[in-house]
Amino acid sequence: MKLADILTCRVYKSGIYHLTHPTDAMSLPTTTRQYSFPQLGSFDNLVIQEVPVSAPKATEVLVKTHAVSLQFRDLMVARGTYSRGNLLPNLVPCSDMAGEIIAVGGDVKEWKVGDRICANFIQDKIHNDSPGEEGLGGAVHGVLTQYRTFPAQTIVSIPDHLSYEEASTLPCAALTAYNALLSGYEPLKAGDRVLVQGTGGVSIFALQFAVASGATVIATSSSDQKLNVATKLGAKHVINYKTTPNWAEEVLKLTNGTGVDRVIEVAGNATLKQSIGSVRKGGSIDIIGLVGGIDDVPPVDIIGPCIGKQINIRGIYVGSVVQFKNMNKLIAANVETTRPIIDKVFEFDEAKAAYAHLASQAHVGKVVIKI
């Protein structure tokens, strides 16, 4: 039986699927063009091929991908330096997408054809306490493809005011920032002071969510031009860490010697000592990434300051479907303050150029591939 025949069935039986609205079966895809890595080492190894489309199971939906956004993890995967989980052979990369449902399985009741959705980064992390190991574009084939099926419980609705390109930035960058600031053991509150490092995707969303929550933001970057963008987005103070290498000292000056309540740590080993110096006694450091590299080893005296200052250190690995839905409520309630910042949009056939632009670190916000 062909996919088009399966998808137009109205009988609910095991392995039989239906469309929630009548449609021309011939319009449904039988193949998809997608990227994959025959071998890792460089994003130049990406190849594009046409493969059959999998029919959705009874609890799945078939989605047409409209946009995919890139993140630093995608570069690490491409280079073969990503160590979390076992990467699949011939991996289809990327984890962050926005698209449109074109067919649903027979047991799916909460979704219909035409719904605009994002897939959650960690497919098996539905609730906050779910184990959460199956990350798209790593342990699970990713989303750099025209069509793909997803389990119905792993997708969320796109806020009405966002385009597909804007919505594609939410699954990793936005949800990671939201989880760090607003869904931990001590959610951010109005009047708190937050330090965000750089102007990449997570940091920009953290800045926006902090401003929307009434917090005061200090932003760092090596570029005055990027810091101007941060100021326009609501950062009260900015620090160029190239001209002010001891930026922890500057943070203390800006906070009357107290330090910030929260640090969004995206650089990792390269900046952790400065982050510890920037945070107040009893404050929090949310460790998110390693964009500063993995070669710089922190000095051995980190443990002492952490204990002395009673710092709360929390590792962040994106978030759950429940957190995603809650974040979208915040975004919908603060339309302009939280609108995603997109640096550049590339066409599907320009995927390698999109990777190269991300690798250049010339971007502010997110790099998106339109499909």
Rank of each mutant, 00 (worst) to 15 (best):
I6K: 14
V11S: 13
S14H: 12
G15R: 02
T20I: 05
A25E: 12
R33N: 15
P38T: 09
L46Y: 05
E50F: 05
P56I: 06
V61S: 05
V63R: 00
K64R: 14
T65G: 00
V68T: 03
V68K: 01
L70P: 00
Q71Y: 09
F72I: 00
R73I: 00
A78S: 13
A78G: 07
S83M: 11
G85L: 08
N90F: 10
G99E: 07
G99Y: 08
E100H: 11
E100Y: 08
V104P: 00
E110R: 10
W111V: 00
V113S: 04
V113M: 11
V113D: 05
G114R: 01
C118V: 06
A119N: 02
A119L: 04
D124Y: 01
H127K: 13
N128L: 06
P131T: 10
E133D: 10
G137D: 11
G138Q: 09
A139G: 15
G142M: 01
V143D: 12
L144T: 10
F150P: 00
A152E: 09
T154C: 08
V156K: 00
S157M: 09
P171K: 05
A173L: 12
T176M: 06
G184W: 07
E186K: 14
I204H: 06
I204V: 15
L207F: 08
A210C: 11
A212G: 03
G214S: 08
A215H: 07
A215S: 08
A219R: 01
S221P: 11
K236Q: 15
Y241P: 01
Y241L: 06
T243Y: 08
T244A: 08
P245Q: 10
N246S: 15
E249Y: 12
V251W: 06
G257M: 04
D261G: 05
D261M: 05
E265A: 08
N269T: 10
N269W: 10
S275R: 01
R280M: 10
I285R: 04
G292V: 07
I294E: 15
I294K: 14
P299W: 10
I302L: 15
P305S: 14
Q310T: 10
I316P: 03
G319I: 02
G319P: 02
V322P: 01
K329D: 14
K329H: 12
L330G: 00
I331S: 03
A333E: 15
N334W: 00
E336Y: 08
T337Y: 05
P340E: 07
I341D: 07
K344N: 13
V345E: 15
F346H: 04
D349Y: 11
S360T: 02
H363L: 06
K366E: 07
V367H: 02
